[in-house]
Design a protein around this nucleic acid. Structure first.
Lengths: 224, 224
DNA sequence: CGCGCACGTTAAGATGGCGTCAAGATCCGC
DNA sequence: GCGGATCTTGACGCCATCTTAACGTGCGCG
């Protein structure tokens, strides 16, 4: 879990952080705005997310709120502002810690370690088991009858979002915006195709699903 | 919050109500017209407001509208007229319930308690339970005798609106505009069809409903 | 006493969403 | 640049849901 997602609209800072973090053993992915950050986070599990509050497309706290709907990944917030208002808002939304720009790299690295240490301890095993398959969210692996099941990235995204909200009705809008982005809210077609594939790979009887239930006109529900 | 503001232009009724309510543990403030009522409400927080629609200086619904611009205090309306027109207007403006003059004190006291109970509970209750079914607003799920109940999107919309306002009289207009849109305020037919379906799915005896009560000519009320 | 209005109930037709399949288009690793 | 995996797109039949209309009932009012 040394994968870090860095979200900032300043390409120079992005590049500098990428180099520095890489030198300290982190594997770094970057995103320039909130949309792509959310998409990246949905498609790949990160050990920590470094998030600048001043993004071009959406408010930083909105990104945190959306992330927290399905993920508990530690979030370290960057902000240029000194006022404590947005700091409080970000922490309320679910951020774990806060660094004010300009910051020393030592401080950033220290807080990164602290944030990860804190969450590793308190974390329970993110493994979900049903009658017919098992999902290991940390290892990003699905097994069925002892066999690994191959899933495409998109299939993973959908499965992960549903499994992280067990029994909860996830709307088509939520799925489409989290996986494909806000511009795809009309493409309910995609969902039908991928839900069919997920069921074919995971359900004992794809024709009469037990774990991936359809709520017509609204969305889908995962039943462990 | 046992403070009550009673607004009426009849000094005898005012005095009688003051004595009766005081005897039942309420602390009563009175106002003879709309202006002074609004002033009182602004200066002192009341647990509930009892408002006569027939005031000398302004229309009762205007008082409700002005109050609702800044306060969510429960409002219980008194009306001398039998015509349901003004009642509907008052409820649409944001009143919580109404009592028709002449009324029994028992009824008034019962409705006062109900109106207050409603707002105390309604703060945050993602799960609402009745004798015959349970609604989980967060999971978007209804269970009855441990079994899931399948609801269509429209059925859920109506149920949610009613359940989020327990014991409150919700007008047909409110339901129609909220679920179908402002252009459908004439289609009271829809409500009858869907209320029948909700009762068939959720009431123990659909013929004599216990939880979804009809107020003829006005709207519906959810009784937990 | 009878008339009309509002409500409850039912059923049938219209509508639109869903599951399914397969053929391109596109991406990615080698 | 090539080949395979993955994603996008469109078409089709089926079914849940919505819409609409008709009929029976109870109640208030003239």
């Amino acid at each position: 879990m040394n994968d870090v997602l860095v979200v900032d609209d300043d390409p120079h800072l992005l590049k500098a952080l990428k180099i520095t973090l890489h030198a300290h053993g982190y594997s770094v992915v970057t995103a320039p705005d909130g949309e792509s950050a959310l998409r990246s986070a949905a498609q790949h599990p990160f050990g920590v997310i470094v998030l600048d509050l001043g993004l071009p497309d959406m408010d930083g706290t909105a990104v945190i709120t959306r992330l927290r709907q399905w993920s508990r990944v530690p979030i370290l917030v960057l902000s240029a502002r000194h006022g404590s208002d947005d700091k409080v808002k970000a922490l309320d939304a679910g951020a774990d810690d806060y660094v004010t720009k300009p910051f020393g790299l030592d401080e950033l690295l220290a807080r990164l370690r602290a944030v990860q240490r804190r969450t590793i301890q308190g974390e329970e095993a993110p493994v979900v088991t049903t009658a017919s398959f098992t999902v290991d969210l940390a290892l990003r692996r699905v097994t069925r009858n002892g066999q690994d099941v191959r899933l495409t990235p998109t299939e993973w995204g959908i499965l992960e979002l549903l499994v992280r909200n067990p029994e909860k009705l996830v709307t088509q809008q939520q799925l489409l915006t989290e996986i494909w982005g806000a511009a795809y809210t009309k493409e309910a077609n995609y969902l039908r195709v991928y839900m069919a594939q997920l069921r074919r790979k995971l359900e004992p009887e794809p024709g009469t699903p037990r774990h991936f239930l359809t709520e017509t006109g609204i969305g889908y529900r995962f039943q462990p």
